[in-house]
Computed example of a mutant assay.
Amino acid sequence: MAIIGSELKPFTATAYKEGKFVDVTDADVRGKWAVFFFYPADFTFVCPTELEDLADIYPTLQGMGVEVYSVSTDTHFSHKAWHDTSPAIGKINYYMLGDQNHDISNNFGVLREGVGLADRATFVIDPEGKIQLVEITPEGVGRNAAELLRKIKAAQYWQSHPGEVCPAKWEEGETTLAPSFDLVGKI
């Protein structure tokens, strides 16, 4: 199944964001870079550590034109209650989408059958609504927001610099590669 380059599918959801409930659709996502950050459930253990880590880099992502949508199969009401009671989750200023009907989790193929929870998964969507990055980890393995930030910088650079690619561990400002016949076998 091809995931990279596939289109964002239609959805409608209610999110908790900065003290309000707001409606979000796929149309709201198009035209900018976006992160869909799926996690299993509110009021759990690894999830708040990841969401707080992401909250810490959210201002940097916003400065890069990237919006963040965390998604679980909980309701937007549950997201508000968690935000109001957890110091880690209280730091979040990005969208916390409720996916109790499982539409978004199914659209991205990360709903655990028979369980009703989303896998721990990250998708980066480009402004055209196409998936450019995917990461899925097992429930007990948390993600690293700094590495996500590095990957988004590389994806944005690659899209804006045709003919160049970003090698392993590439950091912003470092040398890229220009694939060519003469480069084959020389790396």
Rank of each mutant, 00 (worst) to 15 (best):
K153G: 12
D42P: 10
I92F: 13
T137V: 14
E67M: 13
F37N: 14
G114Y: 04
D23Y: 00
N107V: 01
E139H: 11
R143T: 05
T14G: 00
E147N: 11
I57G: 05
A88P: 00
Y69E: 07
L148T: 08
F45P: 00
G142I: 03
H76Q: 14
T122S: 13
F38D: 03
K17L: 02
N107H: 08
V66C: 02
K151Q: 14
P87D: 14
I57A: 07
V134Y: 06
G98P: 05
E18H: 03
P48S: 01
D119V: 00
P59F: 04
S86T: 10
L54I: 12
V141T: 15
M64N: 08
Q100A: 14
H79W: 09
F123K: 08
A121W: 07
Q132T: 14
E52T: 10
A13C: 13
G140D: 13
E50I: 02
G142R: 01
V110F: 04
T85L: 09
I125W: 12
H83I: 01
Y69S: 08
D23Q: 14
V134N: 02
V71H: 04
G109D: 01
A118S: 15
V68T: 15
G98N: 08
K20T: 11
Y58P: 01
I57D: 03
V46K: 07
T122N: 11
L111C: 08
A81W: 01
A81Q: 06
F21G: 06
V24Q: 04
V24E: 03
P40N: 04
A41H: 13
K80L: 07
D126T: 02
P87W: 07
P138T: 14
K32W: 00
R150W: 01
I152P: 03
P127S: 07
T14W: 01
H76K: 13
G63R: 02
V134F: 09
N144M: 02
L148I: 04
L97E: 09
I89V: 15
S72F: 08
V141D: 11
R30T: 13
A121K: 03
E128H: 01
L97G: 09
F37V: 02
D28F: 10
G109T: 04
L97V: 09
L111A: 07
E52M: 14
A118M: 10
